[in-house]
Design a protein around this nucleic acid. Sequence first.
DNA 1: CTAATATTTAGCAATACGGCTATATATAAA
DNA 2: TTTATATATAGCCGTATTGCTAAATATTAG
Lengths: 115, 115
Amino acid sequence: MAVENIAKALGDESRRKIIELLKDGELPATAIFDQFDYAAPTISRHLSVLKDAGLVSTRRNGVFIYYSLEKDALRQLDEWLSPFLPKVKAAPKEKSIPTPKIPKENPFDKFQSEF
Amino acid sequence: MAVENIAKALGDESRRKIIELLKDGELPATAIFDQFDYAAPTISRHLSVLKDAGLVSTRRNGVFIYYSLEKDALRQLDEWLSPFLPKVKAAPKEKSIPTPKIPKENPFDKFQSEF
DNA sequence: CTAATATTTAGCAATACGGCTATATATAAA
DNA sequence: TTTATATATAGCCGTATTGCTAAATATTAG
């Protein structure tokens, strides 16, 4: 699943920082390397993890490789999260016939504490 | 940072499944164990990782320990994501004096490709 | 107190991860 | 073609992770 690799990729501080660096547009690898105290190959690996997760893409221009953020990947994670996050903004107030509540048989109901 | 542990915790399939199981309410550990082919101690460890990340909380009732989802933790990750996700829903259309665009000096501007 | 059940902890093994240095590769300039 | 620069890959090493089984702990019932 894609969410797997996206979440894993975001579970590292350096990689989240790279994402933040790319927020406003593409950057060549060197510009990214410069923002870290780690050796360049270490960051290069982080970049490839991000790329494998679909979080960044690259384009080459001469000797430079520009990295840019793939926001769609972040959106995928956001979509995984969204069912758990109660929407604060209320649904449009509409006079509609309320859907009849047919309580769906939930195999866990027996575990739902009644206290 | 909290996002670190939350993202790491979500980077595992079994743990995401636990979160999904808890979506509609608390469950005792055993009910969770039953949903996996893994040995109970394995899932117990996943539960403790989730708890350390603040993603679930527990309450004891007799011999049972009920786990419930802490949506606030998920929201924290969502908040980390949100600056990267262009809001689809437009901001409230208001006739306001547009803030003068003073281009902020960005140390990376020199890297922004101009092609 | 003893037994039974629910759950966690300890400790082992295999694999993954995240640093590093050294080396390889790609492109451009000379 | 040689050189210089940008970037990636290989491989080492220590630590973390994730599975397991066995054992410990907590609570309730008898």
